[in-house]
Structure formats: C-alpha cells, structure tokens
Simulated assay, not measured.
Amino acid sequence: MTTLRHAPPRAADLYIGLMSGTSLDGVDGVLLELARSPEAAQESRHSSASHLRVRSHAHQVFPGQLRTDLLVLTQSCPDEIHQAQRAAIELVDVYAQVVTKLLSQEALAPSAVRAIGAHGQTVRHRPDRGYSVQINAPALLAERTGIAVVADFRSRDIAAGGQGAPLVPAFHHAAFWHAGEALAVLNLGGIANLTLIDQAGSTIGFDCGPANTLLDGWVQKHLGSEFDAGGSWAAGGGVSAALLHDLLAEPYFAALPPKSTGQERFNLAWLQRALASHAALQPQDVQATLAELTATTVAQDLRRHLPQARTLLVCGGGAENADLVQRLRRLVPGVDVMSSAARGMPPQQVEAAAFAWLAAQTLAGLPGNIPAVTGAAGPRVLGAVYAV
C-alpha cells in the first residue's frame, strides 16, 4: 500500500478548484479551506473531513457554441489545432467568471487564495498511446485572475506509466474515509468512476464505464433536452435484456484495473453499433437500458473489488438522477447508497474540491496520485504551476 502524505496548510489556506467534466454541462468551482496543523498532518497518513471545508460553490453553464466546439474536439475534425486553442481561450473566460463569483461571494481579494487547481476539459484520453489532452489555457487564467494556477495534472502520471486517471481517489480518502470502514465513493459524471477503500485504508479506483455521457446524449438526440431530469424518462421505459446483454459484452467492462476511459470509447456511435441489432426498440426503452447499464457495471465492480463495502457515497451530476440511484440501490442490497452530502460535501462540489486539494499537494511538493489506482511506477507530484 502507498502511504499518502498530505500538504500541511499553515493555519487556514484557501484554494480554488475548477472542474468541467465529460458531461459538458458547465464549470463547477469551489473555494476550499484547508485547516490543519503540520503536526496533525505528520501524525496521520490521511486527512479527515474536518480538515476540509468548502466555503463557497459556483456554477457556470457553457455557452452553447463552446459546448458544441468541445464536443466536436472529442473526435477528429478539420483544423483541430486552431479549434482547440480557440476553445481553450473561451473555456478560460468561463473559468474566470467562476473565480470572480467565488471571490465575490466571500468578499475576498485574489491575494487571499494560494492557487487555482484547473483540470481543463478532457477531449482525448489515450493513456494506451501515452497521452491525455485537456483543453486549457492556464497562463491566461493566471493573468485574468491574478492567482497562481496549477494545471496539467495527468501528464506526469502518464509519463510514469500510469493511466493519468482517475485522480480523485486520494481526495476521496482524505475527505470521506473513516478508519476501520470499507467505503465506496461513486462519481457519476460523463463517466462513472469508483473509489474503493478497505478497512485498512488501502485504496483503488477506476472508471467503470459510461454514465451521463450516453444518458445525456440519447435524451438530447430524441427529446432535445439537455439531460433527463431526475431520470424520469428512463423510469418510464422498459429495460431491454437483449440490448443490455450486448452492451455488457464490451471488453472494457471485464478488464481489470488500473483502467480509465472516456468519450473516445463510449459515445453515441458506440451505442448505435449495438442498436443495429435492436432496431425495433423505442427510444425511451433505450434510455432505460442505458441507465440499467450504468447501474449494472457499477454494481458488478463493487461486488468484484470491495464486496465488504456497506456504504456507497454518490457524487457528481448523476447523484441527482433519482431513477439511476434507485437502480443502484436495487442492485447492491445491503449497501447504504447515499449522497456525498451526508459526509458534508454536496455532489456537485466534490470533483472541483478534489482539484483544489490536488493544487495544494502540488505546491507542497507532495504526490497527488495513487500508483495502485493509476498504474504509475510510483507516487508523483502532479501538475504544472503558473505563478503570478
């Protein structure tokens, strides 16, 4: 097991975390307070929830054209270099708006914040080919905000032979785990990913498969809605056992971790290939089957890798999908499925808080990855710093 060390804040350090996930619904930002003595940091391998406090949260939706541009960049397109750089500048405009909101909500000057952790927008994730691409312009963000920016979190882990993802399990451990419990944390973003922490604190994590990326894409295609609010459309459909069987035949689901994935694998083209043999299905029944697919892959992975877990914390946008959460509860009897809010952090804040925390690790010169999660050769300090 890798022993994690955590950045020892001085009295109460403030960091901003920014996250725009694969669901492409906009940017979440948090102002995170890290309050812990250096002595406490040295005495414990992991932070506890009392050391972390989200003081403010802000959300900004993507302008329609930016969302379209980012989605186009997930596949090969004409003039990609220009399109990517233009999208990065526009993305930073949204990031800067979120930072301004957070500072205004707390009546803070930029100098009160040590750094911004800005993950960027993932458009290609190919660790098997040695790279992962996040659209971002961190130097511009530092100029716009007057705050140091930490970005490019994945590349060092990939250089060390890792997947570069997921990076949030170390934060989940710091924020949510209690000694002696077997805990699972599920992020339902565009992709579903699990963090699994056993009673001794050993941590693994990986991407299970698609979540909102297919659910949102299908409802947009057929209803014109941005997402299936509460999962109500899926709840009114019927699961196709035959389609579910064919979708579950995807080799990724049987692969052992470390593993990570994204829209380059799970997209509407992937779904359409499977639907070629199920042309008579109604769109609403396909939506129900996609929800069942997400719940099934998560349940299978939980039983396979941490069957002793009795608590499953759910975060990310999918935590608001009542139908999906109910499917999970049905498939993992004996497990208490609850919102991350039950441990003090609402679902939409968790990933942004993770990148604020990772920025603190970077500035302290401490690792942010867990080799057992990503497959890297060892612990690595992640990210590049754009100072002011």
Results as ranks from 00 to 15, higher is better:
182 A>W: 05
253 F>Y: 15
361 Q>S: 10
331 L>S: 07
278 H>C: 01
85 Q>M: 11
162 G>L: 09
309 A>M: 07
165 A>K: 06
281 L>M: 06
53 R>Q: 09
234 A>N: 08
344 G>Y: 13
174 A>Y: 11
68 T>N: 09
2 T>H: 07
258 P>D: 04
280 A>D: 09
331 L>D: 08
386 Y>P: 01
171 F>W: 12
77 C>D: 08
238 G>I: 11
50 S>H: 14
334 G>R: 12
114 R>V: 09
323 D>T: 15
142 A>E: 09
231 G>F: 05
249 A>R: 15
192 A>I: 06
301 D>C: 13
300 Q>V: 10
386 Y>V: 00
85 Q>H: 10
16 I>N: 01
361 Q>G: 06
313 L>E: 05
362 T>V: 01
362 T>L: 00
322 A>M: 01
173 H>E: 14
145 T>N: 03
220 Q>F: 03
24 L>K: 11
71 L>E: 14
128 D>A: 07
143 E>M: 10
220 Q>C: 07
214 L>F: 02
379 P>R: 06
227 F>G: 05
381 V>K: 12
355 F>N: 06
65 Q>D: 15
267 N>Y: 04
251 P>F: 06
169 P>T: 05
329 R>T: 10
147 I>Y: 07
308 Q>P: 00
150 V>P: 06
172 H>L: 02
351 E>W: 00
99 V>N: 02
273 R>I: 07
150 V>F: 11
193 N>M: 04
249 A>Q: 15
74 T>N: 14
342 A>L: 09
9 P>Q: 09
155 S>C: 12
97 Q>L: 11
362 T>P: 02
215 L>S: 12
384 A>T: 11
246 D>W: 01
128 D>R: 07
378 G>W: 01
217 G>W: 03
157 D>Q: 09
84 A>Y: 04
293 L>V: 10
157 D>N: 06
121 Q>C: 05
153 F>Q: 13
155 S>H: 13
153 F>I: 11
243 L>D: 11
154 R>G: 07
157 D>S: 12
332 V>S: 12
323 D>L: 04
58 A>Y: 02
158 I>A: 01
269 A>P: 03
149 V>E: 00
220 Q>K: 14
102 L>Y: 03
99 V>G: 12
81 I>Q: 15
249 A>P: 00
228 D>G: 10
193 N>E: 08
144 R>V: 00
139 A>S: 15
193 N>P: 09
67 R>I: 00
83 Q>H: 14
5 R>N: 07
286 V>C: 06
76 S>P: 03
255 A>K: 13
3 T>N: 08
337 V>S: 07
147 I>C: 08
82 H>L: 15
25 D>I: 03
163 Q>R: 15
178 H>L: 12
91 L>P: 08
46 H>V: 04
315 C>V: 04
284 Q>E: 12
4 L>C: 08
191 I>V: 15
134 Q>H: 12
89 I>F: 09
229 A>F: 06
202 S>H: 15
22 T>L: 01
254 A>E: 13
339 S>I: 01
208 C>H: 04
386 Y>Q: 05
152 D>E: 13
115 A>E: 06
322 A>E: 14
368 G>Y: 02
38 P>C: 00
30 V>N: 03
93 D>A: 10
203 T>N: 02
94 V>F: 05
47 S>Q: 12
201 G>P: 08
47 S>C: 10
